[in-house]
């Protein structure tokens, strides 16, 4: 699995271009073309109460987006990357998915929202919806994130997300797909951290020998994952953790100075996902790092 073409949809939020710039290194791992997309939300120009459609407003928005994209394209040309501009009107998420399908991209990049002080989540509802509905890998690119750590407000800039990715696995088929994708990062990643968290509730009620068996089995599987990566010429390091999955993964990523988290999206039933959110979605929501989700 090689990412040759990616879709970069944007609403031109603050630092959107910086987020794009930090992906340009992907040329080293096979990236050839970037599709720059801007979806004008139909609600911005359509259904004016008793007024119809703001055609001139749409034209103005299109022109603005075109000018900005053309400026961005200069940077892409300098890096030897092809690019294409798509500006459409519609419902943002279905439209992004439609463009991705039409363009045949390998990866969709989602931005982060401008977060207020009261919010803990690092992504917006549109990104969450995109994660839920995309059948392609989605990279939630968080270029600059502010978060609280040990009572202090920390500002983090994720400039080189591919340098030290953390591959979080639950041994599911989608985790294997994530492994295959991570294996394509040779030349960009210094080391891949392969991690598994033994869920606290699984260990609950188990005797010491059972826990020991679980640990041994997990370590063996982690080692097998690392071997596969090493066979591809990548340095890999195994980490086994225990506890509630989401906080454990976030702690691990901080301790090991990971630059990105890669996960297969887990196939939880719709009801549970609706109310609780899957582990992968919650990690994407609450981690300060870019998260690459592989469905």
């Amino acid at each position: 699995m090689v990412i040759k073409k990616l879709l970069f949809p944007t609403k031109f939020q603050e630092l959107a271009f910086n987020a794009l710039e930090c992906l340009l290194d992907m040329k080293k791992i096979g990236l050839e073309e970037i599709v720059l997309a801007h979806v004008i939300d139909r609600e911005e120009v359509g259904f004016v109460p008793y007024g119809g459609y703001l055609k001139e407003e749409e034209i103005r928005m299109r022109e603005e987006a075109q000018i900005r994209f053309e400026d961005w394209q200069k940077a892409l040309v300098k890096r030897g990357l092809r690019s294409k501009i798509r500006i459409e009107v519609g419902n943002p998420i279905p439209e992004v998915l439609r463009i991705a399908d039409e363009e045949g991209v390998d990866l969709i990049v989602a931005g982060r929202k401008n977060r207020s002080n009261l919010e803990k989540a690092h992504i917006g509802s549109h990104t969450l919806e995109l994660m839920r509905h995309s059948s392609l890998p989605v990279l939630i690119c968080k270029y600059m994130v502010q978060y609280e750590r040990q009572g202090e407000r920390v500002t983090q800039v994720n400039e080189h997300p591919f340098r030290r990715p953390l591959l979080a696995t639950d041994w599911s088929p989608n985790s294997r797909k994530a492994l295959t994708l991570a294996a394509s990062f040779k030349g960009l990643a210094e080391k891949i951290l392969v991690a598994h968290v033994i869920e606290a509730k699984i260990c609950k009620g188990c005797d010491a020998s059972e826990v020991e068996r679980l640990k041994k089995e997990s370590n063996e599987r982690l080692a097998a994952y690392c071997r596969e990566l090493e066979q591809q010429g990548l340095a890999a390091e195994a980490h086994l953790y225990s506890g509630p999955s989401v906080p454990a993964l976030i702690d691990l990523s901080r301790e090991q100075k990971a630059t990105m988290i890669i996960m297969g999206t887990t196939g939880k039933d719709r009801f549970r996902e609706f109310w609780l959110g899957s582990v992968s979605h919650r990690v994407a929501e609450f981690s300060e790092l870019p998260v690459l989700l592989v469905p």
Binding site: F47, P49, Y50, Y53, K55
Partner: peptide, 12 residues
């Protein structure tokens, strides 16, 4: 109300 919705869809 539907008049403006129809107009909006047609213009779009």
């Amino acid at each position: 109300a539907p008049n403006f919705m129809v107009r909006s869809i047609a213009e779009e």
